[in-house]
Lab assay of single mutants.
Amino acid sequence: MAAAAAAGAGPEMVRGQVFDVGPRYTNLSYIGEGAYGMVCSAYDNVNKVRVAIKKISPFEHQTYCQRTLREIKILLRFRHENIIGINDIIRAPTIEQMKDVYIVQDLMETDLYKLLKTQHLSNDHICYFLYQILRGLKYIHSANVLHRDLKPSNLLLNTTCDLKICDFGLARVADPDHDHTGFLTEYVATRWYRAPEIMLNSKGYTKSIDIWSVGCILAEMLSNRPIFPGKHYLDQLNHILGILGSPSQEDLNCIINLKARNYLLSLPHKNKVPWNRLFPNADSKALDLLDKMLTFNPHKRIEVEQALAHPYLEQYYDPSDEPIAEAPFKFDMELDDLPKEKLKELIFEETARFQPGYRS
């Protein structure tokens, strides 16, 4: 834990890192770190609560700039109880001085990944967590956004079992017609939660990839272990087919990539493993919904509104309290091709509203 900075004593240090967030945020305490930044909790002297502050230093890398800009653009436009918001952003007053960006968010005690390492969940908890994931996802999908990296560590939890989806750095506007060349190379989302079509096709992607990830998360809540822990690309596919069985001819016809289709045709026939054999203690309604989410063919996979209306979630289902976005989200430009200098300018502009004396 960093010592509390005395008023006016300059930035606090946390594990050798400068955290320049005073005077409003003090009493910093280390939480963890990701690929390009550290997260601390801090005391907000204005709202009198502890908050989470993520320090991001992305400006050396085009990919990190892209992810940072995506996350900020999306989260500043989203407003939903099951999606983490941005409360404040701290950065230098000029673009030349801006080396880091500090993002202030609600402090959540833990995440689903940490929880599943230590606790076996009751059916009631599984049901409530799944409902909140789908409630947040309904809003995301209504904005025409794909999260693309749903996994237990991106689901934040607090002691009252509130759940918030975080990390929109890989999110995209849904565009089933656009052929994202190089899709697989830039697709760094965790393999275990990846839909089979991501490994088999490169053309376009749809909201059904997020539903697949939610199915993987439900299976993990039922058993405290990942359902498809593939060691590499082909191993991942083999794990999936080992449980779902061989795809039907109709399902194979959806695979545009001939090499991928021929690979699947070359494999020995596998039978589907019954879900109640894998999860003998699970609620039968939970397994019915799991089956509809972990469907090989993305066109037959359940959609988020149908999933919310499934009998497993009937005690929570309330369409009048499951809000959607006001308007579909649009990125003005494809960020993939922009140089990091341009992305830095866009991050600077996007964060201006939090600067003292800002006038829109």
Results as ranks from 00 to 15, higher is better:
A9L: 05
T63L: 13
D283W: 00
L69M: 14
L237D: 00
D251R: 09
A7K: 01
L75S: 10
A35N: 15
Q105T: 09
I86S: 12
R91D: 00
T160D: 04
I83A: 00
Y113E: 03
V21P: 00
R301C: 05
P152A: 06
I74Q: 10
K138N: 15
V304M: 10
D283Q: 08
D44C: 13
H232A: 06
D44M: 13
A3I: 00
S41P: 00
L115S: 02
S248M: 08
A327P: 06
D111K: 01
D44A: 13
I86L: 08
Q132P: 06
L241G: 10
A260D: 12
V104P: 08
G10E: 12
Y128L: 06
S320M: 11
E334Y: 09
L252S: 09
Y358V: 12
L170F: 04
L244T: 07
L76V: 00
E303M: 10
W212C: 14
L184Q: 14
E96T: 00
N154H: 09
D337Q: 06
N271L: 06
H310I: 05
D291R: 12
N47P: 13
N45K: 15
S248L: 08
S122E: 10
I209L: 09
E60Q: 13
N276W: 03
Y358E: 10
G169L: 00
L313R: 10
D111V: 14
Y128D: 02
V39F: 13
G8P: 08
I256Y: 04
C65S: 15
E81S: 14
E322A: 14
V104F: 12
L289H: 03
D179Q: 05
I53H: 01
M38K: 15
D88Q: 01
K203F: 05
Q97Y: 12
Q315I: 06
R148L: 14
A286W: 01
N238V: 12
Y193N: 15
K138Y: 12
K270D: 07
E326M: 07
D283P: 05
P93Y: 03
I255H: 02
Y312I: 10
N201K: 15
T68L: 15
S41E: 13
G242D: 13
C65W: 15
I255T: 06
D177T: 04
L264T: 11
A195V: 11
S248E: 07
Y128F: 15
L146A: 08
H269T: 09
G16F: 04
A282P: 08
E197K: 11
Y312G: 05
L150P: 12
L343M: 12
T94S: 15
I347V: 00
N82C: 05
E322Q: 04
C40Q: 14
A327M: 08
G136W: 14
T206C: 07
L75M: 15
Y30C: 08
E334L: 08
V173W: 03
S57N: 10
P339E: 09
I84H: 07
L234F: 06
P152Q: 05
A307P: 08
L234V: 10
E341F: 05
A4D: 11
I256Q: 12
F19Q: 12
A2R: 05
Y102K: 13
N27V: 01
S266I: 11
F168L: 15
H80S: 04
G136F: 06
C40F: 14
M98C: 08
Q66M: 12
K285N: 14
K117I: 06
W192I: 05
G22H: 11
P268C: 04
D332C: 02
C166G: 13
F19N: 14
K285D: 08
A2F: 03
T26F: 13
G34W: 13
A52L: 02
H178K: 10
L121Y: 04
A9F: 00
R277E: 13
Y43P: 11
H178R: 12
P93A: 12
N276S: 00
K164M: 07
M293W: 02
E96V: 13
H239F: 11
D291N: 12
L335M: 12
A307G: 06
L75W: 15
S41W: 11
S284Q: 09
R261E: 08
P280Q: 10
R79C: 13
Y131Q: 02
P152Y: 01
N154E: 08
A171P: 05
A3Y: 07
L313K: 01
G204I: 05
K231V: 02
H180S: 06
A327D: 14
R194D: 05
T26R: 03
K259W: 03
S208Y: 15
I90Y: 01
N262A: 08
T181N: 12
R172M: 10
V51P: 13
G32L: 03
K151T: 13
M98P: 06
Y36F: 14
K340W: 02
G85T: 10
V104C: 03
Q97W: 11
K73F: 09
D336E: 14
E349I: 06
T159H: 12
G85D: 14
L294K: 01
A174Y: 11
Y358W: 06
P152I: 02
I240S: 04
F329V: 02
M199V: 00
A286K: 03
I31D: 15
D321N: 11
L338T: 08
L150F: 07
F59G: 15
H120I: 07
I89Q: 00
P226V: 05
H239S: 09
P328Y: 03
L75G: 13
L218K: 06
I84L: 10
H141L: 15
P58K: 15
Q249F: 05
C166T: 10
K203T: 10
E96F: 10
E81N: 12
M108A: 13
R67L: 07
P339I: 08
Q132T: 04
